[in-house]
């Protein structure tokens, strides 16, 4: 039974994160609706990456990280004592800023996640399916055994997206997925993200304001670890409530 659309897929309540006592995120609360694209914008060091990593418990891989508050996925507390972070990361996938293909073949890259979680079905069919979803299949179908590091940066990033989809997550977290790519590769990734809308809930941290405006239904603006404003992308961009949002969007120094 799928929960009604009104229940948010992910929500944060009073979420604060610090690293070795240095606050990175303070008292953030927001709800992410199902099947939508949500972008997180804000200046460098504002906590975009930290917020993303709260959603799949990646922050705890960093020594000295401390998380307070609650993160709920389908209503369940992700940080409850009995929750296994490995299971969380199979439900909530992540794509990183730098394309990080494993030094293995294209096929093995995609197959890594399913193999790790003990996938029993037809691995070849799954690999073809997710590579097609990522728009990479026509380019690599003939050379699945070729090393992934031989692909172009844009192809590598699409491979990383395909690899994440192969674990069958319901949420996709993307941490500035196009910031290391050229405009053509960026356009392809954006088209891909757009095509995932509806099937997946996508949270994308970006410093490219146009990208946020083009892609997302909702936008959150973070500054200095505070959630300054969160709402429909169009409203936030055309009619920001908070003067801090306005000055960031117009590029004015404060």
């Amino acid at each position: 039974m799928t929960p009604p659309a009104s229940v948010p897929v992910l929500s944060a309540e009073g979420l604060s994160v610090s690293f070795d006592g240095r606050t990175a995120l303070s008292n953030v609360s927001l709800e992410l609706p199902r099947g939508r694209i949500v972008s997180i914008i804000g200046p460098s060091g504002c906590g975009k990456t930290t917020l993303l990593r709260c959603f799949n418990r990646m922050n705890e891989l960093v020594e000295g990280a401390h998380t307070a508050g609650a993160v709920r996925f389908e209503g369940f507390d992700l940080y409850a004592a009995h929750v296994d972070p490995v299971e969380v990361r199979r439900q909530i996938g992540m794509v990183f800023q730098q394309p990080t293909p494993f030094p293995k073949s294209v096929f093995d890259n995609v197959a890594f996640g399913p193999r790790a979680s003990g996938f029993k079905g037809d691995l070849h069919a799954l690999v073809e399916e997710v590579l097609s979803s990522a728009g990479l299949w026509p380019e690599v179908a003939a050379e699945l055994d070729a090393p992934a590091l031989a692909l172009s940066a844009g192809q590598q990033q699409r491979l990383c997206i395909a690899r994440t989809l192969a674990v069958k997550p319901s949420v996709l977290l993307m941490d500035e997925p196009t910031s290391a790519l050229d405009p053509t590769a960026t356009a392809r990734i954006e088209a891909l993200v757009h095509s995932l809308k509806g099937t997946y809930t996508v949270v994308i941290a970006t410093h490219d304001l146009q990208q946020a405006a083009r892609l997302s239904d909702l936008t959150a603006f973070l500054d200095g670890g505070d959630l300054v404003e969160y709402g429909p992308t169009e409203t936030l961009f055309t009619n920001p409530r908070d003067p801090r949002t306005e000055s960031y969007l117009t590029g004015r120094a404060r």
Partner: peptide, 27 residues
């Protein structure tokens, strides 16, 4: 071994042992 490799493997829901066995040790 680049940290990105560790993060990527953990991000795909690999256990600590899987990350070690399939990413860190081969690299």
């Amino acid at each position: 071994v680049p940290d990105g490799l560790r993060r990527a493997a953990y991000g795909l829901g690999a256990t600590r042992w899987q990350v070690l066995r399939h990413q860190i040790l081969p690299a």
